[in-house]
């Protein structure tokens, strides 16, 4: 055996277990998903080749007497939901950065705070979702109870005041009664609040902390001597120095965001009310495992693939220079 072949053999032997899994569970399935998207298959009857019909049904439109209609308006709505929920990403990143900056001072108990902030991330999952379902329960959840208690307290106070001043009558305030997860317009913001709560002290804060510690103090000292205020120092030193971190967090969150939302939709809202919290991944799940449309589900997945691909490409084009991967 030549050295060359030996080297190749050794290399591939090391690679083999992973490469095998990679081929079987990633590479081939991606190809299979593309192929499957050209079929109509309900798992019971043999799959039938339908060409691009699934994509036409998904992305296309048609005309009738009343004008032009989207072929699958639900898809666009759920895509919009997915994007809407992703607006939590910058909010959460901002909160993380702020927390990290505050934590990055010479403060006693830093480790304790960091641990506490990280708790929701560690515990994330179905358990936390059940907890939040209760927090959001409009009838007897934590939020509405607190709102009611505060309003009642206020009303009691004004009533007493009115009692002291004869001739003055005060109308008690009605407590606002947000419906949270049950309201069409409340549901998405509710999920976002949960997400920001769960994520702001988590991974991105840790990464920001690490990034902040990597900035040399001399930079700040020099800036201070030049008379830069705190905001200017933040704007011109901290932010630029953290760009790689920001970019990393952003790109991973965006990729995750496009495929996210399933767990919360399944556990907390069933995608409702009226589809307000259905995301693309939940839609795929419904088509594949509830409505018997494997091919159509695969077509949605393929479209999702291209969306993520395009977005990542754009991200790299505009931010990629800042991070060095290879």
């Amino acid at each position: 055996m030549t050295i060359h072949r030996r080297r190749n053999l050794t290399g591939f032997l090391f690679l083999a277990p992973n490469l095998f899994g990679f081929m079987v569970f990633t590479a081939v399935p991606v190809g299979a998903a593309f192929a499957l998207s050209l079929f109509q298959w309900d798992l019971f009857h043999p799959p039938r080749f339908v060409g691009l019909q699934n994509f036409v049904d998904l992305l296309g439109w048609f005309r009738d007497a009343e004008g032009r209609h989207l072929a699958d308006p639900r898809f666009w709505k759920y895509l919009w939901n997915t994007l809407f929920l992703m607006t939590a990403i910058p909010i959460q990143m901002g909160a993380s950065l702020f927390l990290a900056i505050v934590l990055n001072q010479k403060i006693r108990g830093r480790v304790l705070f960091r641990t506490v902030f990280y708790l929701p991330t560690v515990c994330a999952g179905v358990g936390i979702m059940l907890l939040w379902m209760w927090i959001y329960n409009p009838e007897f959840g934590l939020f509405n109870t607190v709102i009611k208690a505060v309003v009642d307290f206020f009303n009691a106070g004004t009533a007493r005041l009115a009692h002291l001043l004869p001739g003055v009558s005060v109308r008690p305030l009605a407590a606002p009664h947000p419906t949270w997860l049950k309201g069409y317009h409340w549901a998405k913001p509710s999920l976002m609040i949960m997400r920001v709560w769960g994520g702001m002290g988590g991974t991105s804060m840790i990464l920001y902390l690490a990034g902040l510690q990597g900035i040399s103090p001399e930079l700040y000292e020099a800036a201070e001597i030049d008379g830069a205020g705190p905001w200017q120092r933040f704007r011109h030193i901290t932010l630029p120095m953290l760009t790689p971190t920001t970019f990393f967090i952003f790109i991973t969150s965006v990729i995750g965001g496009f495929q996210g939302g399933f767990d919360a939709a399944y556990v907390m809202t069933r995608g409702g009310p009226d589809g307000a919290t259905t995301t693309i991944s939940y839609y795929i799940f419904n088509h594949a495992f509830r409505w018997f449309n494997m091919g159509y589900a695969a077509a949605i997945a393929v479209v999702l693939f291209f969306i993520v691909f395009a977005v990542t490409l754009v991200n790299w084009k505009y931010g990629g220079r800042k991070v060095n991967y290879l």
Partner: peptide, 9 residues
């Protein structure tokens, strides 16, 4: 409807 259409009620 808000008070009626809630799950978990």
């Amino acid at each position: 409807p808000d008070e009626m259409d809630q799950e978990g009620l």
